[in-house]
């Protein structure tokens, strides 16, 4: 071979390394690509070569020329960029960016939305009812008669206003979201599938797990053939979706005046501490409730459930004190 291309390449790379300004780059160009440069010499030598060597050398010299053009262009950019950078003003792109920080939704309103959303996906409609209620809707309509021990769990705040429906009674702050059931059923015929979120009030002394105001979510499903095993199915699905598949549940018989059979639902984490935490009450709608809203006897069956939002949020996020929800410390609000 007349030309040692390997050695030429090595020389090219060595030379370009040593180039740091445009003047040296021009000298480099002339050395290789100039009229009397190396590439030109190689081309000139072609007619003298053997027919076997000619195409090989031709190919390699073309490659060499392309490489040199590339190297020269790249070096030119590099030299110009270095020059510009030296004259540019100071800039530190690692300083903090300036945005318009968005606000945060309160964790209770997020939890309510999430829970309602899960039930909406199962076919429920979200409805709301008033916080100021009558005794009739809060108690009697739910099979909680006056002077009955079943009222013991429902200490209630009364207001200094007479009930327009019964002037002998005062209006009250609902002590649970269940009066929403009565309102919905009085206004609509089955089939019904509703979720009723809202604030409820009970004169409980405030401590880490009690608040005189808290949030409940009520569910009601009424149709021709709602059965007890639907209650288990529905709430199991809800808990698995809300708390994740790592959840264990149990249904325990309990008593609520407005459902029969009634149950409490406990959950526990498969890999967590072996303890059961009560999270909601539920049951099959009591026939007395259907009777109170004027549904024909024996025509419908239904299920109902109620859960405390604060309690569920405390369990899910590991919050120890219920009061933190209502203090509205920015450091708390901005965590969610």
């Amino acid at each position: 071979m007349a030309w040692d291309f390997a050695q030429i390449h090595q020389g090219v790379h060595q030379d370009i390394e040593g180039v740091h300004d445009l003047q040296a780059l021009e000298a480099f160009r002339i050395k290789y690509l100039g009229k009397k440069g190396l590439v030109s010499d190689i081309f000139d030598s072609l007619p003298r070569l053997s027919p076997e060597e000619k195409p090989l050398v031709g190919k390699q010299v073309n490659e060499l020329r392309n490489l040199l053009t590339q190297l020269i262009n790249a070096k030119k950019d590099e030299v110009q960029q270095t020059k510009k950078s030296a004259s540019s003003p100071f800039f530190d792109v690692t300083l903090p960016g300036i945005g318009w920080p968005v606000g945060h939704r309160h964790i209770l309103s997020q939890a309510i939305d999430e829970i309602c959303g899960l039930f909406e996906k199962l076919g429920f409609a979200v409805m709301e009812g008033p916080e100021i209620e009558s005794e009739e809707n809060n108690f009697e309509g739910l099979n909680i008669p006056a002077d009955h021990p079943s009222r013991d769990g429902f200490d209630t705040f009364y207001l200094d206003v007479a009930d327009p429906g019964d002037k002998t009674k005062k209006l009250l702050l609902r002590s649970h979201t269940s009066p929403g059931q009565v309102r919905i059923m009085k206004a609509h015929k089955p089939p019904l599938a509703v979720i009723i979120p809202g604030k409820v009030y009970r004169p409980d002394a405030v401590d880490a797990s009690h608040s005189f105001m808290f949030h409940q979510i009520e569910g009601l499903l009424v149709a021709d053939d709602v059965k007890f095993f639907h209650l288990k199915g529905l709430l199991t699905t809800f808990c698995q979706r809300f708390f994740g598949p790592d959840i264990q549940m149990r249904f325990r018989p309990h008593f609520f005046p407005f459902t029969e059979p009634s149950a409490e639902v406990d959950i526990s984490w498969k890999h967590g501490k072996k303890e059961w935490l009560e999270i909601m009450g539920c049951g099959m709608v009591h026939p007395a409730v259907f009777k109170a809203v004027g549904y024909p006897e024996g025509k419908y069956t239904g299920l109902a459930f109620g859960l405390g939002v604060e309690r569920i949020a405390m369990l899910r996020y590991g919050i120890q004190d219920i009061r933190v929800f209502f203090e509205n410390d920015q450091r708390f609000l901005k965590q969610f």
Partner: peptide
């Protein structure tokens, strides 16, 4: 930021 405060 959203807050939730007591009604009373």
């Amino acid at each position: 930021d959203e807050v939730v405060s007591y009604s009373m």
